[in-house]
Protein backbone atom coordinates (compact mmCIF):
# COMPACT_ATOMS: atom_id res chain seq x y z
CA UNK A 1 0.00 0.00 0.00
CA UNK A 2 2.81 2.37 1.02
CA UNK A 3 4.72 1.48 -2.14
CA UNK A 4 1.68 2.28 -4.27
CA UNK A 5 1.18 5.65 -2.57
CA UNK A 6 4.87 6.43 -2.96
CA UNK A 7 4.66 5.69 -6.68
CA UNK A 8 1.54 7.85 -7.05
CA UNK A 9 3.18 10.73 -5.20
CA UNK A 10 6.36 10.35 -7.18
CA UNK A 11 4.39 10.43 -10.43
CA UNK A 12 2.73 13.73 -9.43
CA UNK A 13 6.02 15.26 -8.34
CA UNK A 14 7.61 14.30 -11.66
CA UNK A 15 4.67 15.70 -13.67
CA UNK A 16 4.68 18.95 -11.69
CA UNK A 17 8.46 19.25 -11.98
CA UNK A 18 8.23 18.70 -15.73
CA UNK A 19 5.54 21.39 -16.02
CA UNK A 20 7.66 23.82 -13.98
CA UNK A 21 10.71 23.17 -16.16
CA UNK A 22 8.65 23.57 -19.33
CA UNK A 23 7.08 26.82 -18.13
CA UNK A 24 10.38 28.35 -17.08
CA UNK A 25 12.34 27.25 -20.14
CA UNK A 26 9.67 28.42 -22.55
CA UNK A 27 9.10 31.76 -20.85
CA UNK A 28 11.42 33.57 -23.26
CA UNK A 29 9.83 32.24 -26.43
CA UNK A 30 7.49 34.79 -27.91
CA UNK A 31 4.52 34.04 -30.08
CA UNK A 32 5.20 33.84 -33.82
CA UNK A 33 4.42 37.12 -35.52
CA UNK A 34 1.96 37.39 -38.36
CA UNK A 35 3.37 36.89 -41.82
CA UNK A 36 3.83 39.80 -44.20
CA UNK A 37 3.80 39.54 -47.99
CA UNK A 38 7.09 39.46 -49.82
CA UNK A 39 7.84 39.46 -53.52
CA UNK A 40 11.10 39.14 -55.44
CA UNK A 41 11.40 40.30 -59.03
CA UNK A 42 12.46 38.78 -61.32
CA UNK A 43 11.31 35.46 -59.94
CA UNK A 44 14.47 33.89 -61.29
CA UNK A 45 17.74 35.31 -62.54
CA UNK A 46 21.34 34.35 -63.15
CA UNK A 47 24.44 36.05 -61.83
CA UNK A 48 25.82 38.59 -64.26
CA UNK A 49 26.98 42.23 -64.32
CA UNK A 50 23.46 43.05 -65.55
CA UNK A 51 22.40 42.90 -61.88
CA UNK A 52 24.19 46.21 -61.32
CA UNK A 53 22.21 47.96 -64.04
CA UNK A 54 18.93 46.20 -63.49
CA UNK A 55 18.96 45.13 -59.85
CA UNK A 56 16.79 42.52 -58.20
CA UNK A 57 13.73 44.24 -56.70
CA UNK A 58 12.21 43.19 -53.40
CA UNK A 59 8.84 44.48 -52.27
CA UNK A 60 6.64 43.70 -49.33
CA UNK A 61 3.58 44.75 -47.39
CA UNK A 62 1.99 44.14 -44.02
CA UNK A 63 4.78 45.67 -41.95
CA UNK A 64 4.46 48.28 -39.22
CA UNK A 65 4.17 51.75 -40.76
CA UNK A 66 7.49 53.58 -41.15
CA UNK A 67 9.66 50.78 -39.82
CA UNK A 68 13.03 49.64 -41.13
CA UNK A 69 12.83 46.26 -42.85
CA UNK A 70 15.86 44.02 -43.19
CA UNK A 71 15.92 41.49 -46.01
CA UNK A 72 18.08 38.43 -45.43
CA UNK A 73 19.03 35.48 -47.58
CA UNK A 74 18.99 32.19 -45.69
CA UNK A 75 22.06 30.12 -46.45
CA UNK A 76 21.70 26.37 -46.87
CA UNK A 77 23.07 24.39 -43.95
CA UNK A 78 26.84 23.95 -44.13
CA UNK A 79 27.17 26.67 -46.78
CA UNK A 80 30.32 28.75 -46.28
CA UNK A 81 30.28 32.39 -47.27
CA UNK A 82 33.00 35.05 -47.07
CA UNK A 83 32.52 37.17 -43.97
CA UNK A 84 29.77 35.01 -42.49
CA UNK A 85 30.44 33.04 -39.32
CA UNK A 86 29.98 29.27 -39.37
CA UNK A 87 27.17 29.59 -36.83
CA UNK A 88 25.30 32.11 -38.97
CA UNK A 89 22.65 31.26 -41.54
CA UNK A 90 21.22 34.68 -42.45
CA UNK A 91 22.99 37.30 -44.50
CA UNK A 92 21.50 40.76 -45.03
CA UNK A 93 21.17 41.57 -48.72
CA UNK A 94 18.95 44.66 -48.71
CA UNK A 95 17.06 47.07 -46.51
CA UNK A 96 13.76 48.80 -46.99
CA UNK A 97 11.71 51.43 -45.23
CA UNK A 98 8.04 50.69 -44.83
CA UNK A 99 5.78 53.60 -45.70
CA UNK A 100 2.72 54.76 -43.82
CA UNK A 101 0.85 51.85 -45.43
CA UNK A 102 3.39 49.29 -44.15
CA UNK A 103 4.66 48.53 -47.65
CA UNK A 104 8.18 48.86 -49.01
CA UNK A 105 10.07 48.41 -52.25
CA UNK A 106 13.84 48.18 -52.48
CA UNK A 107 16.64 46.74 -54.57
CA UNK A 108 19.70 44.60 -53.91
CA UNK A 109 22.49 47.18 -54.07
CA UNK A 110 25.79 46.63 -55.93
CA UNK A 111 27.82 46.16 -52.69
CA UNK A 112 25.48 43.33 -51.68
CA UNK A 113 25.60 41.78 -55.16
CA UNK A 114 29.41 41.90 -55.06
CA UNK A 115 29.80 40.65 -51.49
CA UNK A 116 27.07 38.04 -51.20
CA UNK A 117 26.15 36.92 -54.72
CA UNK A 118 29.58 37.05 -56.37
CA UNK A 119 31.60 36.81 -53.13
CA UNK A 120 34.36 38.95 -54.62
CA UNK A 121 37.66 39.80 -52.97
CA UNK A 122 38.66 43.46 -52.53
CA UNK A 123 41.92 45.11 -53.54
CA UNK A 124 43.62 47.66 -51.26
CA UNK A 125 42.49 50.22 -53.87
CA UNK A 126 38.91 49.45 -52.84
CA UNK A 127 38.14 47.76 -56.13
CA UNK A 128 36.28 44.45 -56.32
CA UNK A 129 38.61 41.62 -57.24
CA UNK A 130 36.73 39.21 -59.49
CA UNK A 131 39.74 36.89 -59.66
CA UNK A 132 38.96 35.98 -56.06
CA UNK A 133 35.21 35.79 -56.67
CA UNK A 134 33.32 32.67 -55.67
CA UNK A 135 29.77 33.11 -57.01
CA UNK A 136 27.07 31.34 -55.01
CA UNK A 137 25.80 28.25 -56.82
CA UNK A 138 22.47 28.26 -58.69
CA UNK A 139 19.57 27.13 -56.56
CA UNK A 140 16.55 28.24 -54.58
CA UNK A 141 17.33 30.44 -51.60
CA UNK A 142 14.85 31.40 -48.92
CA UNK A 143 14.61 35.14 -48.34
CA UNK A 144 13.14 36.62 -45.17
CA UNK A 145 12.12 40.24 -44.64
CA UNK A 146 11.77 41.28 -41.01
CA UNK A 147 10.43 44.49 -39.54
CA UNK A 148 13.06 45.76 -37.10
CA UNK A 149 10.44 47.17 -34.72
CA UNK A 150 7.53 44.79 -35.07
CA UNK A 151 9.48 41.58 -35.88
CA UNK A 152 6.73 40.89 -38.41
CA UNK A 153 8.25 38.85 -41.20
CA UNK A 154 7.55 37.72 -44.72
CA UNK A 155 9.14 34.95 -46.71
CA UNK A 156 9.82 34.31 -50.39
CA UNK A 157 12.11 32.23 -52.54
CA UNK A 158 14.88 33.64 -54.72
CA UNK A 159 15.77 31.42 -57.65
CA UNK A 160 19.26 31.73 -59.04
CA UNK A 161 19.53 29.81 -62.29
CA UNK A 162 22.67 28.76 -64.18
CA UNK A 163 23.84 31.29 -66.77
CA UNK A 164 22.82 30.50 -70.32
CA UNK A 165 25.39 28.58 -72.33
CA UNK A 166 27.39 30.75 -74.70
CA UNK A 167 26.61 30.21 -78.37
CA UNK A 168 29.54 28.76 -80.27
Amino acid sequence: MNKLRFRQNLRWVLILSFIMFWLTSCAGISKPKPMADLKIEPAQFFLSPALFKKPVTISGSGFKPNELVIIEMVLPEGFKMKGIGEDERNVGIATGNAGADGAFKTTVKPTAVLNWFFQVGWTPMLKPDFKKAKPIPPGSYDVIATGMDSEIFGQAVMNIIPPPKKKK
Binding site: K82, G83, I84, E88, G92, I93, T95, T111, A112, W116
Partner: peptide, 16 residues
Protein backbone atom coordinates in the same frame (compact mmCIF):
# COMPACT_ATOMS: atom_id res chain seq x y z
CA UNK B 1 30.82 41.27 -37.22
CA UNK B 2 32.29 41.26 -40.70
CA UNK B 3 29.95 43.55 -42.62
CA UNK B 4 32.23 43.73 -45.67
CA UNK B 5 31.29 47.44 -45.60
CA UNK B 6 27.71 46.56 -46.49
CA UNK B 7 24.81 48.35 -44.78
CA UNK B 8 22.30 45.48 -45.14
CA UNK B 9 24.73 43.02 -43.62
CA UNK B 10 25.40 45.42 -40.73
CA UNK B 11 21.69 45.77 -40.00
CA UNK B 12 21.26 42.01 -40.21
CA UNK B 13 24.20 41.59 -37.79
CA UNK B 14 22.69 44.11 -35.42
CA UNK B 15 19.32 42.34 -35.59
CA UNK B 16 21.06 39.14 -34.51
Amino acid sequence: IDTRYDVARAISGYKR
